[in-house]
Each structure stands twice: as C-alpha cells, then as structure tokens.
Design a protein around this nucleic acid. Structure first.
Lengths: 177, 177
DNA sequence: GGCCCCTCCTTGAACTTTAAACAAATGGCC
DNA sequence: GGCCATTTGTTTAAAGTTCAAGGAGGGGCC
C-alpha cells in the first residue's frame, strides 16, 4: 500500500479524482497520533480498571456528574458531554448503578426523561481514586510536554473536536443517534 | 469535584502528598484532547464500518500487512506495530480470516509462530477503500490544521507514544501481556 | 536427555460497545 | 381534542475487547 507524495494529473472527465494521499510527513504525524492515542487509552483504562474498578469512560461519567449542579444530569446531556451514544450511556449507567455509584431518578418536567445522579459512594470512589488518576495523566502527558506544547495540543484537539460536531441540523453526532 | 489550581503546602511527615491537580488550563487541554480523540475515533470507526465493513483497528491491521515484505507479519510483530494485545489480535485476525481478507500461515523457523498474510481480496478491499478513508482523515484533521500545527501534533504525540513504551524490561506493553 | 522457565499464540467467559428496533412522552399543527 | 413527527431513553442481539488460563515449542542449563 503505497501513498504517493505527489499525485499525477488527472483529466477533467468523469473519472474519479486521484485521492489526496497523505505525504510521508503527514503519514508520520498520523501514525504518531494513532499510536499515542491507542497507548494512552490503553494505559489509562488499565490504571483505572486496577485502581477504581471501571474503564476510563465510566470514570469520566462520574466526573461529569460530580461537576454538575446537584450532581445529576439528564441522560442525553451526559451523553453529549461525554461524546458518546445514548445507548452506550444506558449500558454504562446500568453498570454503575449496580455498583451503587449512580442512581437513576425520574425527571418531573418530562416523563420521558431520566436523571443520572452520583451517589455518595460514587463521590467517595472519585475522591479516593482521583489523585492516582491525575498523577497517571501527568506522567503520561503533561510532565513530558513544554508549556508551549501543552497549549498547542489544546488548540489542535479543540479544533478537531469542534470540526466533528458541526452545528448544522442532521449532523451525525453520537448522542443524537 | 474541584481541582484546586494551587495546592496548599503539606508537611514533610508520613501524610500523603497533596495530589498535583491539573490547573484550569491543563484541565481544558486534557478535555479537548479526550473529546477530540473520542469523536475522531467514533467518526473513523463509523466511516470504515460503513465503507469497508470493519472497525478502524482492523483496517489498520490490513494496512500494516500491506506494507510488510511479502504482505505478512508474525502475530506478535503485528500486535506491536498496532499497539494492541496479542489476544485482541488473535480475535481480530480470526474475524478477518473469516472474511477472506487475511490467512494464517505456519512459521517454518518456529513452530509456535504464525504469520498473518494479507490475501488478494484483502488487498483489494484496501485498494478500494483507502481513498475514502484518507479523505475522511484529511477532512477531520489535516485540512483543519496549519503546517505548524501538524508538525507540532506529530512531535507531541510521538513523545506521548514513546513515553508509554519504555525500553526497560518488565514494562507493561500490550503486546507482551 | 531431562528439567525448567520463558515465549508464542489461542481460547472461553465476562464485560463493553454497536446497531437496530421499540415504547412512551412531547410538541406542533390542524 | 386528535394526529403525526420528533425526542428520550431502553432493550436485545451481535460484535468487539479484556482477562485469566493454558497448550505447545524454544532454549538454557545440569
């Protein structure tokens, strides 16, 4: 599978455009990204599974709840904050509920609605495991980057994130699937 | 869950160190990273599931095989390149084999060993779907970043990736689990 | 050879995620 | 009110991943 750096000129007929292949340098960037992201995900999943008994995504859900007013959020709202599908969230909350870390509550305003509420034990787990997790993130990311790189990383990833959640109607956003 | 920007001084006794919480700015960087990575992963998984009938990771495996001499790699070698566990790879190759895109071959030198070999149909799938995938990556990432940002992203993610695969013996690397 | 430890890879069960289908409630519109 | 499209959240089954265990071969050492 070669990725030619320069594309041969194509005619202006109905033939398909020559794909805009990645240059060698772009390839290197892309691979570094995928490798870093894969390893980081694996690393943090492992750290949290070991120390908190849940995967990284679930931990992130508890954090969002802890930050929310009255430690509760509507399901769709939580899915949106976590950038996941409602289905995935339903399963996750069911599991966290079984652990006693979250409980569901009906929404008074909208009988379809459900709140996910962080329980006291859930908060306790977070308090107990947050220091270790922050430390893991520091060691893997922040301690290795200069302040300029940290800033740059933030800008870059924010651009990518925004690009993937267009405001237009009909956009394929996970929490609306 | 608050993350104090400045930590109160702690005594030099046996009490646990005050965690090195993330500053507000670090928090923003970290969240942008997680959100961008999550959305990107979801986006590419979806694109490839739709157009190539397999998840992003599986697609990556085919690419690695296509680039390898004689389009084949030892299982552990492939796991290392893809930064995943051998178990995960075993399952993945089993699935790709069922699709006829990969076949296994015994290693003559080492009777424990297996080669994963890209079949002609596998190569064909790749040839057919690569343009669409490259385009998706461009749209989501490269088209949105300046050359400087691209360079920066490459450096940053390479640092993170390297940091997570230390050369020391006993390191917890996915492909050695 | 025989022993032991390590490497290579697979397996099955438990867990997580995705995809598709669904019920119930809402809200706009007539 | 009655209708209908949309929103909200869940459920089921299939697909993918992790975890723990294990079979089989390699390779050093006696």
């Amino acid at each position: 599978m070669k990725a030619p750096a320069s594309a041969p000129a194509t005619g202006s007929t109905a033939e398909p455009q020559e794909p805009r292949w990645l240059t060698d340098e772009e390839q290197r960037v892309w691979r570094s990204f995928m490798e870093g992201a894969t390893l980081l995900d694996d690393h943090l999943d492992r750290q949290l599974q070991r120390d908190a008994g849940m995967p990284h995504v679930y931990y992130g859900l508890l954090v969002k709840l802890a930050e929310a007013p009255r430690r509760r959020l509507r399901m769709t709202e939580l899915a949106m904050l976590a950038k996941i599908t409602r289905s995935r969230l339903s399963h996750a909350i069911a599991r966290l509920e079984k652990n006693g870390w979250v409980r569901r509550e009906d929404c008074p305003d909208d009988k379809r609605g459900q709140f996910a509420v962080l329980t006291e034990e859930g908060y306790e787990v977070l308090r107990r495991t947050a220091p270790g997790h922050v430390e893991a993130v520091r060691q893997a990311v922040f301690d290795r980057l200069t302040p300029e790189q940290q800033k740059s990383l933030g800008e870059i990833m924010r651009i990518i994130a925004e690009g993937l959640q267009p405001t237009e109607a009909g956009a394929d956003l996970p929490w609306l699937r």
